Amino acid sequence: MHLSESAMMDGANPFEFDGPVPVDHVIDRQREADAIEAWTREGQLMVLAAPRRYGKTSLIHKVSSEGKRNGLVVVTADLFGVASLADLVLRLERAWAQYTPERLRPTVVKILAAARAGVSISGSGFAVTMADSPAADPLSALRVILELPTQLAQREGERILIVLDEFQSVAGVPEAESLIWQHAHQHLDAVSYLFSVGRPDIVPESPSGRPVETLRLGRLPVTELHEAIKKRFVAGNRDVAGVLDGLLTAGEGHPQRTMLLAHLLWQEVHMGAQATDDHWEAALTMALRLVAPEAQATMSGLSAGQRKVLRAVAEYGTPMAARALRTLGLPKTTAQKATPHLVAAGLIEEMSRGWRVIDPLLARWIRTNYGTRA
């Protein structure tokens, strides 16, 4: 990233936007963290649903951190793009290797060794097993690692929470989803499951019909964002009172995009200085440059009709506005067919009044580059 001389930083930037944020920087998610921990101890099955970049992983880290202090073992597996049963085994094996507390590692090692399925959290794991024995059965290995939390809980008396992040990816792996649900229903008195999904329009349901607690992450409240962002700027001896409302308006409560804008504004304002409109415009311009490659890729990946609907929502707040249909040459039937696809892709969402693009910077980029309204 190239910055002008006036944009040089005076101290560490406190706004992280390119990954999960530190636990102590999570804004306004304590109620959600408390709910997950309470449901875990009650033996509930849980679903956490939110669009991409809404802070699901950051919330999970918060639950894990607070759970450790309260005697809760939390094992989190990232299943994004999982491709096969063998890949799933490797993801779960890696999760146990990373998150098993030291006091429990000897027991976990013994349980896995006794199963003789080639799964391990120390030394050679299932990848080596497959290399040495091409005929190794990933389904048997998966059963072993799915039975692990129950056996561990029974031996050690520990309460365990298994978090399966990006669980929707499992749908493409034959047998995996049904097997996971089967194990999730066993011994809920000691082991709970949290299924985290990036498709808020499709929430997984238990095949058995057992109730599942669903938690949908929304956008962050303006009041809490205002207070948190202002506090960090003040701590860095920077005054952003004059432009903070503009930043919050542009971010629309979107967690990651708001942090990106705050990060870029911090870089524009010297320590001891007061943010001006020029600082804010420079930060916003840089934000649009940063999102441009992703925005272009998003647009290129859509059909002509889908692009028109996305533009209509970005500019007019609905794909069915008469002016949008006329200006963009968008037939109503095309709009009706394309809209569900954009919802499923996590690009747009319906509100009480109209529609909006989930990513406010994508919407602004579209209006800036393809605007049809004065």
Rank of each mutant, 00 (worst) to 15 (best):
residue 95 A to W: 00
residue 99 Y to A: 12
residue 82 V to F: 04
residue 97 A to G: 10
residue 89 V to P: 08
residue 97 A to T: 04
residue 102 E to G: 09
residue 108 V to W: 03
residue 103 R to N: 13
residue 99 Y to H: 14
residue 97 A to H: 03
residue 86 A to S: 15
residue 79 L to Y: 00
residue 89 V to G: 09
residue 104 L to W: 10
residue 82 V to Y: 01
residue 81 G to A: 12
residue 107 T to V: 15
residue 84 S to Q: 10
residue 76 T to Y: 11
residue 98 Q to Y: 04
residue 82 V to Q: 03
residue 76 T to G: 13
residue 85 L to F: 06
residue 76 T to E: 15
residue 80 F to H: 13
residue 97 A to L: 03
residue 105 R to W: 06
residue 94 R to G: 13
residue 101 P to V: 13
residue 77 A to V: 07
residue 99 Y to I: 05
residue 88 L to V: 07
residue 85 L to W: 06
residue 91 R to P: 07
residue 86 A to R: 07
residue 105 R to I: 06
residue 96 W to V: 00
residue 96 W to C: 03
residue 91 R to L: 13
residue 90 L to K: 14
residue 89 V to C: 13
residue 101 P to A: 08
residue 85 L to H: 05
residue 88 L to G: 05
residue 100 T to W: 02
residue 82 V to G: 04
residue 90 L to N: 10
residue 76 T to I: 14
residue 81 G to S: 08
residue 80 F to M: 13
residue 79 L to V: 01
residue 88 L to W: 01
residue 100 T to P: 03
residue 103 R to M: 11
residue 90 L to G: 12
residue 95 A to L: 03
residue 80 F to E: 13
residue 89 V to L: 13
residue 108 V to C: 08
residue 101 P to L: 07
residue 78 D to G: 08
residue 104 L to F: 13
residue 90 L to C: 15
residue 85 L to D: 02
residue 97 A to R: 14
residue 95 A to C: 02
residue 103 R to F: 14
residue 106 P to C: 12
residue 91 R to H: 13
residue 86 A to T: 09
residue 80 F to A: 15
residue 95 A to F: 00
residue 85 L to E: 12
residue 99 Y to R: 02
residue 80 F to S: 14
residue 101 P to Q: 09
residue 101 P to C: 09
residue 99 Y to C: 07
residue 103 R to Y: 12
residue 94 R to A: 15
residue 88 L to H: 00
residue 102 E to F: 08
residue 86 A to N: 10
residue 106 P to G: 10
residue 95 A to K: 03
residue 88 L to D: 02
residue 82 V to R: 02
residue 97 A to S: 13
residue 97 A to E: 09
residue 85 L to G: 04
residue 105 R to M: 09
residue 103 R to S: 14
residue 96 W to M: 00
residue 105 R to F: 10
residue 99 Y to F: 14
residue 84 S to N: 10
residue 92 L to W: 01
residue 86 A to Q: 10
residue 76 T to S: 15
residue 96 W to N: 01
residue 92 L to M: 14
residue 79 L to T: 00
residue 105 R to L: 07
residue 86 A to C: 08
residue 103 R to W: 11
residue 86 A to V: 06
residue 76 T to H: 15
residue 78 D to Y: 03
residue 103 R to Q: 12
residue 99 Y to G: 05
residue 84 S to G: 10
residue 107 T to I: 15
residue 77 A to H: 05
residue 90 L to H: 10
residue 91 R to G: 07
residue 80 F to Q: 14
residue 94 R to V: 00
residue 85 L to K: 08
residue 98 Q to P: 01
residue 93 E to I: 04
residue 91 R to S: 11
residue 108 V to D: 01
residue 100 T to K: 02
residue 79 L to K: 01
residue 98 Q to C: 08
residue 83 A to R: 15
